[in-house]
């Protein structure tokens, strides 16, 4: 039942650290079998061989931070049958979205020796702010098993089996004792999107929300409980101001706990 031609996969990078697309290279046991199934047509981190034209599935990493990228994503969308964004930068704007609403010119003047070389937008925004996205894969970085599942689902024309509930569901499935309840740890698990397999709490570390908000995040209620457990306001503001700071539910609670001059 081999298809007439192998579907074409492309991987694109925008403002990001590369970690998410490297998750595809991390699929060491599966990547050769995957290459048998699909034509990895555009993935510069994987091969210099680049096939131009149209693609069946585009994986997009990174956020939009320049006028150049704002145009480039439109072109990629036009040439992609399906477009899936991967990681916190592509789905929420990433850590670089901390600059949103702040003075970019001042930042640039402090960071770069030649600020005149920098031509950046005032904001870092997710891909879905610019083009239609068929599916969003969360995480900083993404989980490679979820990436494979997503690719396979698109190959077979089914919906990816990716849960959108909280990290708590994964803690409970693996039998991890809740560190918020048993130790009073300020954990973001109850408002964070599942997918990592609840790694951090299993190693006695509170979830820090790298997968961004879950489907129905009640960040206000969680922040209130953190306060009751003794977390100061600035700790709450910082907890919601990391890789997914521009995700609306996190941004709202970060702002509500930020000092006025921030």
């Amino acid at each position: 039942m081999a298809p007439l031609r192998k579907p074409k996969l492309a991987v694109w990078k925008f403002a990001s650290c590369d970690g998410c697309q490297l998750s595809l290279l991390d699929c060491e046991d599966e990547i050769l079998a995957l290459a048998d199934t699909i034509d990895i047509a555009h993935f510069p981190e994987f091969s210099r061989r680049v096939t131009r034209g149209r693609y069946d599935l585009s994986l997009v990493e990174g956020s939009i931070t320049t006028t150049h990228d704002r145009t480039r994503i439109q072109d990629i969308r036009r040439r992609s049958k399906k477009l899936v964004t991967i990681g916190a930068c592509a789905t929420a704007g990433g850590i670089q979205a901390l600059r949103n609403g702040r003075n970019l010119t001042e930042f640039i003047s402090v960071v770069y020796a030649h600020p005149e070389y920098i031509d950046a937008l005032a904001t870092s925004t997710p891909i879905s702010d610019h083009v239609k996205v068929d599916f969003e894969l969360r995480g900083c970085p993404i989980d490679k098993a979820q990436l494979l599942e997503t690719i396979l689902a698109f190959l077979h024309g089914r919906r990816p089996s990716i849960s959108t509930t909280s990290v708590c569901t994964e803690c409970k499935a693996r039998g991890t004792v809740c560190i918020m309840t048993a130790k009073g740890a300020p954990c973001l698990g109850p408002v964070t999107h599942a997918g990592c397999g609840a790694i951090c709490p299993a190693y006695d570390r509170a979830c820090y929300g790298c997968f961004g908000p879950m489907e129905s995040p009640n960040t206000t209620s969680l922040a209130k409980q953190w306060s009751a457990l003794g977390a100061p306001r600035d700790q709450i503001a910082r907890a919601f101001s990391t890789f997914n700071v521009a995700a609306p539910a996190f941004e709202k609670t970060a702002r509500a706990h930020a000092d006025k001059d921030n």
Binding site: M1, E30, A33, L34, D36, T37, L148, E149, L152, A153, L155, H156, R158, S161, T165, S166, C168, T169, K172, A173, C178, G189, P190, V191, M214, S216, N218, T220, S221, L222
Partner: peptide, 30 residues
């Protein structure tokens, strides 16, 4: 609802909650 996190913890620890879902997982080769 203003307090509830919809995090599912209560249903996971409840000794009588029994609901399940099923999902199919395909291999690489199909």
């Amino acid at each position: 609802a203003s307090r509830c996190l919809s995090c599912t913890n209560c249903t996971a620890v409840c000794p009588t909650c029994f609901c399940t879902t099923v999902a199919d997982h395909t291999g690489l080769s199909g």
